[in-house]
């Protein structure tokens, strides 16, 4: 594992960003079909940041956030996270459910929303992985989704710890999806977190290592 993130060339960074671009493009299309609404995508970003500042990069460590995670394990292994602000996650879930939940008791409402969010994560992140699979020819079997609602800092620990095993820098490929609704806009960010050593495999496969 001789890969040193700090010395990545611009070609390598571009290749990684392109993975984010195609993956998130697929994800946006899938989400748009699921919701029957327009979904826009920001220009994807691939950037190197300190593992100690990951949470701060997305907001305050104690801000309420929702993350949906799926794990791909095959010839290449990684975790994919769809990260939202807590309020926006509720809005997105309600958009998908399209049902008045005001008379439902709190616990049931949370369960219904979580099941919708798990499905959103499944569709979006699965579409991202499909694109990656097509680009690389790798079979990428995927796990069921897991949903967490908690402090942003706690949720992002999984990202910091994964990159932190080998060094002090994280390579974050992130894309923001924006869902336009009559009532406004909700958004979420797709973050790819390759297992230690997996990034090297990906760069090799893309022909830039």
């Amino acid at each position: 594992m001789g890969l040193n993130l700090e010395s990545f060339s611009s070609i390598q960074m571009d290749a990684i960003r392109e993975v984010g671009n195609i993956g998130a493009g697929n994800a946006a299309t899938a989400l748009s079909k699921l919701l029957g609404r327009a979904v826009d995508m920001d220009v994807p970003v691939a950037e190197l940041i300190s593992v100690y500042e990951i949470a701060g990069h997305y907001g305050s460590p104690e801000a309420l956030a929702c993350g949906v995670l799926i794990r791909a394990e095959g010839e290449f292994s990684c975790n994919l996270i769809f990260l939202m602000e807590e309020e926006e996650s509720a809005a997105l879930a309600d958009l998908l459910i399209s049902m008045d939940l005001s008379s439902v008791d709190d616990e049931v409402r949370i369960q219904i929303r979580d099941s919708a969010l798990a499905e959103v994560g499944n569709i979006i992140l699965g579409a991202f992985l499909n694109a990656l699979s097509m680009m690389t020819g790798w079979a990428l079997p995927v796990s069921v989704p897991a949903v967490a609602h908690d402090m942003l800092g706690s949720i992002m620990d999984v990202v910091a710890a994964t990159f932190g095993i080998l060094g002090d820098t994280a390579l974050l490929v992130k894309t923001t999806l924006r869902i336009t609704d009559v009532e406004g806009e909700s958004k979420g960010t797709v973050i790819m977190v390759p297992d230690p050593g997996s990034l090297e495999l990906l760069l090799q496969r893309l022909g830039v290592l």
């Binding site: 993350g67 995670l69 799926i70 794990r71 394990e73 796990s143 967490a148 706690s154 620990d157 710890a161």
Partner: peptide
């Protein structure tokens, strides 16, 4: 030392680092 994401049937060491 919490485990924020729990995937049933997957005992992954990266997710169980807590």
């Amino acid at each position: 030392g919490a485990q924020m994401f729990n995937i049933p049937g997957k005992d992954n060491s990266l997710l169980a680092v807590g």
